[in-house]
């Protein structure tokens, strides 16, 4: 217990909380970008445009089947070799968005596939254009159906930001490692504290998901 109090001095706690803020910022930015990009890729795959959809699908599959850690390292360590030099924060956001877009697109395509084809014809017969049908009729329904898998993917995203500590992004995980370097007695207290932070953040997300799900269903 004493170790807990010693480890979580006001200075250390403040330092960790700034890390939590970075974790949240990376998560939110990545969620927004990957959601938009993932929707576009998901729609392309759903539309079954000859050749194009399967080409995009194959590329998407390759990204989806790589470890995120590899993509993060690649973005930060390898891209500078071809002159693309991003600061560690943006490097993480780019890598996470790229990978998560591939994961989300698969969920979004599945959601679109599950919508009854009759809806298209119905909407079109009332004089709506293809794009309008997609925007106002199909996508909102598809998103509703996709809420549970989308939220669990978003929870994964928040957890996965911890991997960026490997490229020295000063997020919660990295800062935790810095704090327990002060004293080896702090290892357990700090790990417990970090677990608590991530758990609360994600648990709130999953409660929100349940709420949304119930309201929309």
């Amino acid at each position: 217990m004493n170790d807990f109090l010693n480890a979580l001095t006001p200075d250390n706690l403040g330092y960790l909380m700034q890390g939590l803020w970075i974790t949240v910022a990376v998560s939110v930015l990545s969620i927004v970008v990957s959601f938009i990009l993932g929707s576009v890729i998901g729609i392309v795959m759903f539309e079954k445009i000859p050749y194009f959809s399967s080409l995009v699908g194959t590329l998407n599959n390759i990204v989806r089947n790589l470890p995120l850690l590899l993509i993060i390292f690649f973005t930060y360590f390898a891209l500078p070799q071809i002159g693309i030099r991003l600061p560690v924060f943006w490097s993480t956001v780019v890598a996470m968005s790229f990978f998560e877009a591939a994961m989300l697109s698969e969920i979004i395509r599945g959601g679109l596939d599950s919508i009854d084809k009759g809806q298209f014809e119905g909407a079109r017969s009332t004089g709506m254009s293809n794009r309008q049908t997609m925007m106002y009729i199909i996508l909102p329904q598809a998103y509703k159906k996709m809420i549970p898998p989308l939220i669990s993917q978003l929870i994964s995203l928040v957890k996965d930001t911890s991997l960026a500590s490997g490229i020295v992004l000063a997020d919660l995980t990295f800062r935790g490692q810095v704090v327990y370097a002060q004293n080896s007695h702090y290892i357990v207290p700090i790990l417990v504290f970090m677990t608590f932070c991530y758990f609360i953040a994600n648990y709130l997300l999953s409660l929100l998901a349940k709420r949304l799900d119930r309201r929309l269903a």
Binding site: T9, D11, N12, G14, Y15, L16, Q18, V168, A170, F174, Q177, V178, V179, A181, Q182
Partner: peptide, 15 residues
């Protein structure tokens, strides 16, 4: 370094 005492350890006050 950020985690090596006496050589390079982050001061959590200043970062």
């Amino acid at each position: 370094k950020t985690d090596t005492k006496l050589f390079g350890l982050v001061n959590t006050k200043t970062g």
